[in-house]
């Protein structure tokens, strides 16, 4: 009888165990080590310096990881084209890499956040007094960066008749702006701010005309992890850390930053 009772209780324990851990993959909310994907070439957001990364994205990632109770965080470069596949394959747990939330991406990964809503804005020479908003770009020379969609937003979506001048990268565009071969550079304000902060001869016009929601990439289906990240982001805004970090990285640039928590995308 003791044997039987023992057998019954063993069975009970086993079945209870099965019911609780029914093969769900581990959530980032429960992990002790996290691999986080960031940008390596975006001043102010994610920039690689030696073996370290620095920038707003990196600081936000560190805060969120801390709130999740993670001891070890490892940062890796997440190139734009590989972000979905890295999350799907599990080579990274989270992505903080100026990763805009879009409906297409949402079919492949889940998004916590956004932790910040950036806006497309325009960078001009400080001496220029003719450009106040995107409409004023009509007839002006706008830098067109290969592989970026930002110029389309001006020329195709806003239908402003600009003259496009090719640039190899945003740093190249900034050089051209100083040399007056272009009149304006238009892309996410946080990216522009990274450049404007280093130079008084250029300025942001503070006339945003799009919403770019920077989300946190989470593996599809990890609802608990996504919700935990959202909670951490809420707390980051409540305890003043968001303000501190935004001022740290973008304060000197004259950019108007939003200091209240963004509208989340919703998990799962």
């Amino acid at each position: 009888m003791r044997v039987r009772l023992a057998a019954i209780s063993a069975l009970v324990l086993v079945s209870a165990g099965c019911g609780l851990s029914s093969g769900q993959p581990e959530s980032v909310a429960d992990k002790e080590t996290l691999v986080i994907g960031v940008k390596q070439d975006q001043p102010g957001l994610g920039l690689r310096k030696g073996s370290k990364y620095e920038g707003f994205d990196v600081d936000v990632a560190a805060y969120v990881a801390g709130k999740l109770g993670v001891q070890n965080v490892r940062y890796v470069t997440a190139p734009s084209a590989k972000r979905e596949s890295m999350l799907q394959a599990g080579t990274v747990d989270l992505i903080f890499a100026s990763y805009s939330v879009t409906p297409e991406r949402k079919t492949k990964v889940d998004f916590a956040g956004p932790y910040y809503v950036a806006h497309q804005d325009t960078l001009i020479r400080s001496s220029d007094t003719t450009i106040h908003n995107v409409r004023d770009l009509r007839g002006k020379k706008l830098c067109e960066v290969a592989g970026s969609n930002s110029w389309r937003r001006v020329k195709e979506e806003r239908k402003v008749a600009v003259n496009l001048v090719a640039g190899a990268s945003y740093s190249d565009c900034i050089d051209q702006l100083r040399e007056k071969t272009v009149d304006a550079v238009s892309t996410d304000d946080l990216i522009l701010a990274g450049f404007a902060g280093q130079d008084d001869s250029i300025k942001i016009i503070n006339a945003p005309f799009t919403d770019e929601r920077y989300g946190v990439g989470v593996k599809k289906g990890d609802v608990a992890g996504c919700e935990a990240v959202n909670k951490a982001i809420t707390e980051m805004y409540q305890d003043g850390t968001a303000e501190k970090l935004l001022k740290k990285w973008f304060g000197p640039t004259g950019l108007k930053v939003t200091l209240s928590v963004p509208q989340f995308e919703g998990c799962g």
Partner: peptide, 13 residues
């Protein structure tokens, strides 16, 4: 930028 996002996040929470 402030109230609606918070209200929306409350629903999600």
């Amino acid at each position: 930028l402030d109230l609606l996002p918070k209200a929306y996040n409350l629903t999600l929470d």
